[in-house]
């Protein structure tokens, strides 16, 4: 019998809130099983141990916002056989990409008394703007069951099953009454990537798009519907300028409502 070496897993953080990597620790029931199937070789949030310098699978959280990180991501890529981005920051630049629409110098002076100490780039960009990415997992935060699916797919050499259709499909499957049609609540569901399990409509609120754009989203038709429901241009702009503001489809739609 051949004993295969366990694949080595690394978790890397760039500009982010730590929530997506925390999702791995939030897999309370699966955590010890995951730890049995892979060797956790570099995961500072969970362990002070670092094993080796190359990794079979790297999970990357966070966006690129500093010159140092723009170099570090290349080192991560070189050290990794497979590189998977986890979450909205790594996949579309995250909430901090709101700086991309403004002058970052003004932002620095609002938050920090001594701007000269701060080294930052003008834009917050997704990992795929810098290096090749093997798979992108959506969400702010990611769905932990989808993360387990990605790990399981990787271990079995198959493609992860994470549908790219709209949130509406999940809502229908769940049996939710449509909040927009029945209650007139503005909802980003029709243009938003599935994956969360349509949480917001299940709690009587409209989707706010944390999984980013779905495949082929018709954002202008949705904006027109929001206008009919009485949404102001500024509130439509704000809706698309959320946690995936720099994702192409959302960015373009929000720019139509600029001023």
């Amino acid at each position: 019998m051949i004993h295969k070496k366990k694949p080595k897993l690394a978790v890397w953080k760039f500009a982010s809130c730590d929530g997506c990597q925390l999702s791995l620790l939030d897999c309370e029931e699966e955590l010890l099983a995951v730890a049995g199937a892979v060797e956790i070789a570099n995961f500072p949030e969970a362990s002070r141990a670092v094993v080796g310098r190359t990794y079979d699978l790297s999970l990357v959280e966070g966006s690129i916002t500093t010159p140092h990180d723009a170099e570090r991501i290349h080192k991560v890529r070189r050290a990794s056989k497979f590189l998977v981005t986890i979450g909205a920051c790594a996949t579309s630049g995250g909430i901090q990409a709101l700086r991309n629409f403004k002058d970052v110098k003004e932002f620095i002076s609002i938050v920090y008394a001594t701007p000269a100490y701060i080294d930052t780039l003008n834009k917050s960009t997704p990992i795929s703007d810098h290096v090749a990415v093997d798979f992108e997992l959506r969400g702010c935060p990611i769905n932990k069951y989808q993360l387990v699916e990605v790990l399981s797919a990787f271990l079995n050499g198959r493609k992860p099953v994470t549908p790219r259709h709209s949130l509406c499909i999940e809502c229908k499957l769940k049996g939710n009454v449509c909040v927009m049609v029945a209650h007139g609540i503005p909802c980003l569901g029709p243009v938003t990537h599935a994956g969360c399990g349509s949480i917001c409509p299940s709690y009587a609120r409209g989707c706010y798009g944390c999984f980013g754009p779905k495949e082929t989203p018709n954002t202008s038709a949705l904006s027109a519907q929001w206008e009919k429901l009485g949404s102001s241009p500024i509130s439509i702009k704000r809706a698309f300028r959320g946690f995936n503001a720099f994702a192409d489809a959302f960015r373009k739609e929000s720019e139509l409502y600029e001023k």
Binding site: C17, L22, Q96, I110, F243
Partner: peptide
């Protein structure tokens, strides 16, 4: 890396503050 929440909260709606500031920390 700095993320400038206090800056980009400006000119957002007051009802958005809980959703936006939650993203400061996943824990």
């Amino acid at each position: 890396p700095p993320r400038f929440f206090e800056a980009f909260l400006r000119d957002r709606d007051f009802q958005e503050a809980p959703d936006i500031t939650a993203r400061i920390c996943g824990i």
